[in-house]
Simulated scan of single mutants.
Amino acid sequence: MNSSINRVAVVTGGSRGIGRAVAERLAADGQAVAIQYSTNVREADAAVEGIQAAGGRAIAIQADVADEAAVKTVFETVAAEFGGIDVVVNAAGILILDTIENFDLNELDRMHRTNIRGTFVINQAAARNVRAGGAIINLSTSVKKLGLPTYAGYAATKGAVDAISPVLAKELRGRDITVNAVAPGPTATDLFLQGKDEATIAQMAKMNPLGRLGTPSDIAEVISLLAGAGRWINGQTIYVNGGMV
């Protein structure tokens, strides 16, 4: 029997990229899925329609992940629609690159608002709503270990994700809820490919022994495990990068 049947997942940033692949995979696993999106209603609706066409259950809800009132409404809406919440995958995030010397601090604040405050707000709501037997999964990044120029601001936000996840795992002691972070390596999404020339992309693809970029489905495969049968993995950051670091 599929242990994911009758489970309910909230996937932030679920309209595109890794988030969408995760939403589609969890729906294929049998979970009802609520896709949170920020602005792109067309992509969110397309994701929902694709899941429904494949026989799954899905809804889309617009919200700013850093706005606690909006996030509270998201979780209330999902619980009312599907009866509760078992899995929360926080895939919402933005990527802004520049050197430390030249970084626009207003842009740094914008990225921190989504990637750090947003992670904290989503995890706070998850801690208040996820049922026993559930899972909370945050998206981190493998780039933290590489020290690549222009990535300091982004890597700092994901370092915060790595700090939050194991603390929450311990704070939820006794409730049978796991909390983990997943740190993808270079993955072929619009977020990653934007602004990079072919030579840079090819160079980054060679950084792991498998000699290719990751795909969103590579990441979704691991998240599917953590969201379902992987109950003995808790408080970890799992690097999903083909052996890059």
Rank of each mutant, 00 (worst) to 15 (best):
T187F: 06
E198Y: 09
A125P: 07
A135H: 06
R117T: 15
P216C: 08
D104C: 03
D190W: 12
V11G: 06
L193F: 04
I94E: 15
K196V: 00
L172F: 02
S142N: 10
V121K: 12
I219K: 03
L168F: 12
D67C: 03
L193T: 14
V87I: 12
P216A: 11
A69Y: 08
R110K: 14
V245Q: 13
Y37P: 03
I116L: 12
S165T: 14
S38N: 14
T187K: 07
E49Y: 01
A79L: 00
A63V: 14
A28K: 14
V143R: 01
L172H: 02
K145V: 09
A163M: 11
I100P: 00
I61S: 04
A199Q: 15
I59C: 06
N90A: 13
R231E: 10
A188H: 09
N208V: 05
A155W: 03
L148H: 04
A79Y: 09
G13A: 03
G214S: 08
G19E: 12
E81Y: 05
D190K: 13
I238K: 06
A156V: 01
N234G: 01
Q124A: 08
N234D: 10
A127N: 01
A152S: 13
V65R: 12
V65P: 01
V48P: 00
I35D: 05
K206R: 15
A46F: 07
A46L: 13
A188N: 13
A181E: 07
Q124G: 00
T141C: 03
L225D: 07
M111C: 08
A156W: 13
Y37R: 02
V143N: 08
A92L: 10
D176R: 07
T141S: 12
I137W: 02
L191P: 05
A132R: 07
N90E: 04
A155L: 02
A53P: 08
K158P: 00
G174H: 03
N90R: 01
A132F: 00
I122Q: 06
N90G: 04
M244K: 13
A27G: 04
